[in-house]
Amino acid sequence: MIIQTFGITKRYKNITAVNRVDLSIEEGEIFGLLGPNGAGKTTLLSMLTTLLPPTEGTAKVNGYDVRKEPGKVRESIGMVFQTPSSDEILTGRENLYLHALMYGVAKEERKRRIGKALELVDLTDRANDLVKTYSGGMRRRLELARGLLHEPKILFLDEPTLGLDPQTRQHIWEYIGRLSEEQGVTIIVTTHYMEEADSLCDRVAIIDHGEIKALDSPSILKMKVGKSMIRAKVEHPKLEYIKGLPYVTKADYKDGIVTIILNEGGAHIQEVLLNLGEVSFVELREPTLNDVFLQITGKEIREEPADDVAEIYARADS
């Protein structure tokens, strides 16, 4: 286990941001933390990276206790923050150089590693430009490269694709995948984007109100919801009857839409529709991570980023 938490808790005056979380993460994993805004993802990450002391409980990161040996923990990890943390007034290369100095990268190694990191994120051409001339996506990539410069065993990424356009998001995730594959780095990532987590993470934890509500591989989580689902727009569904059908595991009606979880949807859709009443829209599909999330937390994950962060990146883009 490269990371293990023991009832780790963070309480503020009125709220418990993280509540007795027990978590084990294996070396080499890409581990996703999913949750709505304010669920406690960033707080959990801040405790694992020693930026915030836990109120209760503790965690071991790379074998070191976050309370007792924060220095050792920080040597083992790299962190990419939710908000931009590269220095605008310096060039990309200078940012990396300072990072190498602060993490005690040996003098002979610095140049080679900076060159390699820049190449990995395709920023070699722009390395000598000031960061303030970079786009939001380039900045993220630079911060990703920086997080790797000291060859950490664990890389923490807090919403690495937040506020970026879909194409850039795609790129960033490609880089993350490449890192995990080529360097064997353990990656802990928080994200809003369910499809991304689904395709990239080995395991995901769904966190809400500071607690872990579910933890498994994306495919198992989706299976737990059910094999297939039907969503239909209906005025007056015969919900009780539908629920009574032997192959239906769950049926909900909310905002004019009925959601039915069932086995072998393809085989049974006709019977379901016959009994549903007048339907103005219908879809049959396999559950996504989003549906898992919805079922567990009772709410949609908000895909829009927190305003201030979006603004910062918008500024970086202009």
Binding site: L51, G71, I77, S85, L90, L98
Partner: peptide, 14 residues
């Protein structure tokens, strides 16, 4: 708040 400093705080430096 933003900027380079958070990255300094998370470094191994005391």
């Amino acid at each position: 708040k933003i900027d380079f400093f958070k990255e300094v705080l998370v470094s191994p430096m005391s």
